[in-house]
């Protein structure tokens, strides 16, 4: 799904990045420990956390798209860190549940995670 379509579905705004990029999977979490433990594939990350560690976590996992939910907007410092890494950042006023639900209903898939 094109980022432009994602923006339309979640009534979002793009902070930085490219609306022609696309995503196929999403993972929603405020706990970066869990993102690091369970994400093994390329996926968009939905989160309500807006600190540097969100960008660092995405960087380590090679994630290109982060969607901030509940109207959260990261600071300029955090946005700059993401910009250096050519990430796409979106923000939406939807809750994590609603943003995840709308994307899932429209074909974005969930990651199948393993519990080793």
């Amino acid at each position: 799904m094109k980022i432009s379509k994602v923006i339309e579905l979640i009534n979002g705004k793009i902070l930085i990045g490219n609306i022609d990029d696309s995503i196929n999977y999403a993972f929603s979490s405020d706990l970066m420990s869990d993102v690091l433990a369970f994400v093994n594939e390329d996926t968009a990350l939905l989160t309500g956390l807006v600190n540097n560690q969100v960008i660092r976590t995405a960087e380590m996992l090679d994630l290109g798209t982060i969607i901030f939910v509940r109207g959260k907007i990261p600071s300029e410092e955090v946005v700059d860190l993401a910009k250096e890494r050519e990430m796409t950042l979106l923000t939406t006023n939807f809750t994590m549940f609603e943003a995840s639900g709308v994307l899932y209903k429209n074909g974005i898939e969930a990651l199948r995670i393993s519990y080793e």
């Binding site: 405020d30 706990l31 970066m32 420990s33 869990d34 993102v35 690091l36 433990a37 989160t47 956390l49 600190n51 560690q53 969100v54 976590t57 080793e116």
Partner: peptide, 15 residues
């Protein structure tokens, strides 16, 4: 508050 402290770090390093 930073999104850590879930007790997953060491097991994740081992994994």
């Amino acid at each position: 508050e930073l999104g850590f402290g879930a007790g997953m770090g060491l097991p994740n390093m081992k994994r």
